[in-house]
Design a protein around this nucleic acid. Sequence first.
DNA 1: GGATGTGAATGCATTCACAGCA
DNA 2: TGCTGTGAATGCATTCACATCC
Lengths: 227, 227
Amino acid sequence: MRSQPIPAPAVRRLSLYLRQLEQLRHGGRTTVSSRALAEALHLTAAQVRKDLAWFGQFGQPGKGYDVEALAARLRRILGTDRTVNVVVVGAGNLGRALLQHKGFLRKGFRIVAAFDTDGRTVGQAFGGIIVQPLSHLESTLAAQDVRLAILTTPAEAAQSTCQRLAEAGVRGVLNFAPVALAAPAPLAVVSVDLTVQLEQLSFLVHSQTDGPADDLDAENPSRSARV
Amino acid sequence: MRSQPIPAPAVRRLSLYLRQLEQLRHGGRTTVSSRALAEALHLTAAQVRKDLAWFGQFGQPGKGYDVEALAARLRRILGTDRTVNVVVVGAGNLGRALLQHKGFLRKGFRIVAAFDTDGRTVGQAFGGIIVQPLSHLESTLAAQDVRLAILTTPAEAAQSTCQRLAEAGVRGVLNFAPVALAAPAPLAVVSVDLTVQLEQLSFLVHSQTDGPADDLDAENPSRSARV
DNA sequence: GGATGTGAATGCATTCACAGCA
DNA sequence: TGCTGTGAATGCATTCACATCC
């Protein structure tokens, strides 16, 4: 049993490898080299090999990696080899869009419930899910095995909702509210602030006036900007 | 005139500082120390000071930073001190949600047009913006000063659309399509794949079985997971 | 005293380069 | 020959610690 810290950037890239492998498989490829994988994602071959090496040996020297087998292994590592139940808290514009988003299920995530405090949205269905009043949160979570939640409430409500989710047994929160959540002990938080992403882009464009252009990928933050 | 490379992680944090400063101002604070700022965002005081130091001197020893002045300076650095025009390409669930999103304008981003190829959505209005056919992309962009675009097309259409945007003079793309875009020379790309974010979370939760819990913030990727 | 700004030191991720295997 | 897996070297970001200033 290994017990070493996996670099967070490496974990981020695992998802990208999986995404790419699924596309390769769709295109009929059965095998792929670290170089090919790297080029498709604008990374280096050594980095791909290092990232995968954290989890053991996958490839065949001289041949490369088996597309299907590596994808299966990555899903297992990411915990998406079985369907993962998710709830959405906050059924505003973004929350409703996510409820109707088709891509999640294909990747192993199933939205099983949605909650809101607004009496006008409660009771309506989006993507086949009926929005429940937030007061039903605890009882609904108690009845199902839900480890992840997507948080799309207004900023003011985010921290307290996060607390409730943690107490109800949720282990991870994907936070879209524009606040730095304080996560109670066993809870993991990943935050995505859409405005922050736009600001990053604005900075890059803005700074191009002096320095050269820079292809900065949020999922793959490699290079730096110049001022 | 400085000409040094700004670390990409530092740029990411500038947005978070700005967000926090705006909240502080809303709460009536006029001054703030690097320590207070750091604690609110779960960072270290030294890091806050280092990040800001890239752009000159802001604070007063013994007092801290002027909330209003620092916020204004950060907006200027990020390029959001004037309104930034943005177009949305792809009016599916996510695209429509972003069109109706209120938060962008408050942060300096104004959506001025939206495009789609689906005849059923074209002509409809969301958030006050009428969706145009994609064929109007070039003419509409020629008529207005638009430097940023939000890309919410299906994966298959993303690369070609990205190309068209670049040729039409757009300088930055916020990409939500699950593909690694190849950005033509002067174009900057920031990618956000919602499924990838969920997978990150799944991994953290999944790996908690062996290692201790880990509060990993996507906007602030600091620590590592353990296996 | 209290806080900033910054060189020096640390720690971490990426890249290199090569041994080993198909 | 082609490609993986990996220790060693590099490069970069974070943290430390302190001189400096209000």
